[in-house]
Amino acid sequence: MTKLYDYNPADALKSDEAIELFLADAFETGDSAYIAKAIGVVARSKGMATIARETGLSREQLYRSLSESGNPRLATTIAVLKAVGFQLSGKRAT
């Protein structure tokens, strides 16, 4: 019998390069729910308590906003990205 383990994608995000690729992939989908969830994964990889402290938002609010069913405000998204060392940027769609 094969033993299955829970997979937590946050555990794979050990470097800024990995996070950058992960976020770029999420943004390329254009799916707001997927993007919010991906930002949540990144926040968990850095430590949700740390992100909460740096953004001034509660952990509960972050978990709720950055879930697949969440709908974070733009201010929340920008604050979390800044706290993990990234920013939103625009580029021309091709």
Results as ranks from 00 to 15, higher is better:
30 G>V: 07
23 L>D: 00
24 A>I: 07
57 L>A: 04
44 R>T: 01
86 F>K: 13
93 A>Y: 12
17 E>K: 15
44 R>Q: 10
40 G>S: 05
36 A>W: 05
50 T>M: 14
52 A>I: 01
64 R>Y: 03
7 Y>D: 08
16 D>C: 06
17 E>F: 08
8 N>A: 14
14 K>M: 15
12 A>W: 14
43 A>F: 04
35 I>C: 09
90 G>M: 14
62 L>P: 00
58 S>G: 06
71 N>Y: 10
22 F>R: 06
71 N>A: 14
73 R>M: 11
68 E>R: 08
27 F>T: 02
41 V>R: 05
38 A>P: 02
81 L>R: 05
24 A>N: 15
76 T>G: 00
49 A>D: 08
32 S>H: 13
94 T>Q: 08
77 T>G: 02
43 A>Y: 04
28 E>W: 05
75 A>R: 13
13 L>C: 14
30 G>C: 09
93 A>D: 07
73 R>Y: 09
40 G>D: 01
56 G>Y: 01
32 S>F: 13
79 A>Y: 02
81 L>A: 09
29 T>I: 09
3 K>G: 00
16 D>P: 08
21 L>S: 14
80 V>Y: 02
34 Y>L: 13
42 V>K: 07
2 T>A: 15
3 K>R: 11
32 S>L: 13
19 I>W: 08
94 T>K: 14
75 A>D: 13
57 L>Y: 07
38 A>M: 11
51 I>P: 00
55 T>K: 03
62 L>R: 02
9 P>W: 14
66 L>I: 04
77 T>C: 05
17 E>A: 15
19 I>P: 01
21 L>D: 15
82 K>M: 06
78 I>Y: 06
84 V>K: 11
44 R>N: 13
49 A>K: 13
89 S>H: 12
94 T>S: 09
74 L>N: 05
46 K>E: 10
90 G>A: 12
52 A>P: 01
90 G>I: 10
13 L>N: 14
59 R>L: 00
43 A>C: 12
48 M>V: 11
91 K>T: 02
10 A>G: 06
60 E>A: 03
92 R>A: 08
61 Q>G: 00
37 K>H: 11
48 M>R: 10
26 A>S: 11
45 S>R: 11
70 G>Y: 02
89 S>W: 11
69 S>G: 04
17 E>H: 12
89 S>V: 07
27 F>Y: 14
42 V>L: 12
30 G>F: 15
85 G>T: 09
6 D>W: 13
36 A>F: 05
12 A>H: 12
33 A>D: 14
17 E>T: 14
76 T>R: 04
56 G>W: 03
77 T>N: 03
57 L>K: 03
65 S>D: 07
83 A>N: 08
6 D>G: 10
43 A>I: 07
43 A>T: 03
46 K>I: 05
70 G>K: 02
46 K>F: 10
85 G>H: 13
83 A>K: 03
83 A>D: 04
12 A>S: 15
44 R>V: 03
18 A>E: 15
79 A>R: 06
50 T>G: 07
38 A>N: 06
29 T>K: 14
26 A>E: 06
43 A>M: 09
48 M>E: 05
2 T>H: 13
64 R>V: 02
9 P>T: 13
87 Q>I: 15
31 D>W: 12
5 Y>H: 15
23 L>P: 01
